[in-house]
Amino acid sequence: MIEIKNARNQQFYDYWQNLERKGESIIPLKSSFVPEDIGHLLSNMIVYELISKDNIKIRLQGTAINERFGQDMTGGNYLDYVEAERRPVASSAFWLMAQQPCGVIATLEHALSSGRKITVESIGFPFENDRGDNPIIIYQSNEIEDYNPIDHKNDGLLKLIFVVDRQIIDIGNGAPSFVD
Rank of each mutant, 00 (worst) to 15 (best):
G23V: 08
F94S: 08
P28S: 08
L29T: 10
P135H: 01
I58F: 04
G70P: 02
R68C: 13
V104R: 15
S122N: 09
H40G: 06
Q99W: 06
N66E: 14
Y15D: 05
L79E: 01
I56C: 04
G124N: 07
I137L: 07
F33I: 00
I58A: 02
K30F: 11
G23M: 07
P101W: 00
M73L: 11
E128N: 15
L108S: 08
I137P: 00
Q61C: 11
V120I: 11
Y13R: 10
S113F: 12
H110V: 00
L79H: 01
I138L: 10
D130Y: 07
R21A: 04
F94W: 11
S113T: 08
I46K: 05
E36W: 07
E24P: 09
I56P: 01
S25I: 05
V120W: 00
G75F: 00
P101V: 01
S52A: 05
F33C: 02
N44M: 08
A111K: 13
S31N: 10
N18H: 13
N134I: 04
H40M: 09
F69Y: 13
T63R: 09
N77R: 02
S113G: 10
L19V: 00
S31V: 07
G103W: 01
Y78C: 10
M97P: 00
V120Y: 01
K57G: 03
G70V: 03
N66K: 11
V120P: 01
E24N: 15
S52I: 03
E49V: 04
Q61Y: 05
G132P: 06
I137N: 01
S32E: 15
F127E: 06
A64F: 09
I138S: 06
Q17I: 12
T107N: 10
